[in-house]
Amino acid sequence: MPAASPPETAEAFAPAVERVREAMLLLPDVTESTSYGTPSLKIGKKLLTRVKDPMTLVIMCPREEKAALMETAPDIYFETDHYKGWPAILVRVDAISDAELIHRLKCAIRLQAPTRRAIRDDR
């Protein structure tokens, strides 16, 4: 009997990975990496976002912003029990606009950058 193939192949991750790569090109000092075996973006050694599964990104987010994001845009933002209390929010890849994705990643840079440097929103 042949071995079962993994439920999520690299091909399944392709749309989410492409969205992350496109965003990376617009952000200074951000590099592509991996986190928990999935594609990610980092600034220095700090995680900004990672592809959790083919339909979901994990984006670093101040804990105090999570509830408001999930309340105002539940079609985009959510969390599971695993992420409660952590400075990260889950994002539906197919629901977030490019502009909102870039905005959230800039917020993640502000949170994670070693020098907490300012990132202008008009870039």
Rank of each mutant, 00 (worst) to 15 (best):
R50I: 09
L26E: 07
S35R: 11
T49Y: 00
E11G: 11
T34R: 03
G44C: 04
C61F: 10
D29M: 03
K84L: 15
E65I: 00
E8V: 15
Q112E: 11
V30K: 04
S35L: 09
C107K: 12
T49F: 00
P15F: 05
L27Q: 04
E32Q: 13
Y36Q: 13
A99S: 05
G44Y: 00
L27K: 07
V91T: 05
Y77I: 03
D29Q: 08
K66H: 11
I119Y: 13
Y83I: 08
Q112R: 15
W86L: 15
R120Q: 06
K45D: 13
V17E: 06
A3P: 10
L47W: 01
P15W: 06
M24D: 00
T34N: 02
L111Q: 04
V58A: 08
L41R: 02
S5L: 15
E32V: 08
T80R: 11
P74L: 07
A88C: 14
I43Q: 04
F78V: 00
E18S: 06
T38Y: 05
E18K: 09
P87K: 05
V20I: 13
M70C: 05
D98E: 15
G85Y: 07
K66L: 13
G37R: 10
L101A: 03
G44V: 02
Y77P: 03
E65W: 09
P15K: 04
L57Y: 09
T31C: 08
A14G: 02
L48T: 01
A88Y: 09
L101N: 01
R123F: 13
L69R: 04
W86F: 15
G37F: 11
P6A: 12
T9Q: 11
E32H: 12
E22V: 07
P114R: 15
A16P: 10
P54H: 05
H103M: 04
G44S: 03
L25R: 13
R104T: 04
P15S: 04
D122H: 12
V20W: 08
S40I: 08
E100L: 10
M24A: 15
R123T: 10
F78I: 01
T49A: 12
T115G: 10
L101E: 03
E71M: 10
L47E: 00
R110H: 05
A14Y: 03
P7M: 07
M55W: 12
L111I: 04
V20E: 07
T38M: 13
K84A: 15
P54Y: 05
P74G: 09
P114A: 14
A99T: 07
C107E: 12
A10E: 15
A67Q: 12
D53E: 11
